[in-house]
């Protein structure tokens, strides 16, 4: 046993020795690390992928990429990208916050950027956060003014404060448009499986429809596909999230709450390439075009001119500060229930 331990320790010491890598700089080498959902999750990661793809298509520069499959890989992937000479590393999602904080601290010459995080502090780290509650407020207004039954619903993915912020913003908007509106809300689950359970999403949607809802907003990743499908099957209406999902069931998707992570990803790469990379926190709300709502040929017939005017008026008031949308994450409570 003792000899084995000794042998193991020596093996560890010798084999993992010699990691003093100096990352080569001078030429621009971007890298992106997608999170657990994978880059084709039809939602958050895929939106980042679209931004990266746009950058690659425009510039012809290939972006190194990696999809993590467990927590430990996040830091490993970032360190490996730096070893391979990456000059800018983009992390996707708040799950990578600790990893990027550690790696950015160890590699002051490399630029880092992360999406959905605003609480870190490194001189070489840019952070993007989104005011999802503002965009959700607007689609909440649309839902409540469109609803004929007087009941609107929300289906969330995993029950975490971020998703509660979507729900809370939506409910505030709905109440603002119709003070008597009846609000329903369900979370799909408590584990990451809740991000990819379309069957349960459809089940929750049907249950909300049975309880009178005729518009259902989803913020649930892949689960949302089931919500949109179930609402379309029942002849009711749904609201998409993150990217423009109006096309997924034309005429049934009332609108989509846009969260422009693709722009964040694109800007990170573009700024780094042009030498304009700056650290700091970018809080993207309505004023910065970081969130918004989707109006295209698929839902033009559903959105009346009054609704459009009311929503644009509210958006202007949110930007000017006249309307304050409460962020659930600020104190983990929601003023509306």
């Amino acid at each position: 046993m003792k000899t084995f331990l000794l042998a193991a320790a020596t093996a560890v010491a010798t084999v993992i020795a010699g990691s003093a890598f100096a990352a080569s700089h001078g030429n621009f080498k971007p890298a992106v690390i997608y999170d657990m959902g994978g880059k084709f999750d039809k939602s958050f990661n895929e939106s980042v992928y679209n931004g990266i793809k746009r950058f690659s298509d425009e510039t012809g520069i290939e972006v190194m990429e990696f999809e993590v499959t467990n927590e430990a890989q996040r830091e490993q992937a970032m360190r490996r990208m730096v070893q391979r000479g990456a000059t800018v590393v983009l992390g996707v999602g708040f799950g990578q916050a600790d990893a990027i904080n550690a790696v950015a601290g160890d590699n002051p010459d490399v630029n880092f950027s992360i999406i959905d995080v605003n609480w870190l502090n490194q001189p070489n780290l840019r952070q993007y956060a989104f005011k999802e509650h503002e965009g959700s407020y607007l689609v909440g207004m649309i839902a409540a003014s469109f609803s004929k039954s007087g009941t609107v619903g929300f289906v969330g993915g995993m029950d975490i404060p971020l998703i509660r912020a979507f729900e809370c913003g939506y409910q505030q908007g709905a109440r603002a448009a119709n003070a008597d509106i009846n609000l329903l809300g369900n979370m799909t689950g408590t584990t990451p499986a809740a991000w990819n359970d379309p069957a349960k999403g459809a089940e929750l949607t049907r249950s909300q429809i049975d309880r009178g809802a005729d518009v259902i907003y989803q913020a649930a990743g892949g689960t949302g596909v089931g919500v949109i499908q179930a609402a379309a099957d029942a002849g009711k209406y749904s609201i998409g999230v993150d990217s423009n999902q109006n096309h997924m069931a034309p005429g049934s998707v009332l609108t989509s709450m846009l969260k422009r992570v693709d722009v964040a990803a694109y800007n990170t790469m573009k700024d780094a390439m042009e030498g304009n990379f700056d650290a700091g926190v970018y809080n993207l709300g309505l004023a910065e075009n970081g969130v918004g709502w989707a109006l295209d040929e698929n839902n033009a017939a559903l959105i009346s001119d009054e609704m459009k005017a009311a929503v644009e008026d509210a958006a202007a008031k949110i930007i000017s500060g006249e309307i304050m949308v409460h962020d659930y994450r600020a104190d983990n409570t929601c003023p509306v229930s």
Partner: peptide
Amino acid sequence: ASAIMVSLLSGPMMQPGQMSPQ
């Protein structure tokens, strides 16, 4: 177990000032 963990980590045990349930 998973449900207990989620409710505690996104509630009383959660580190303030950030968003991850940890």
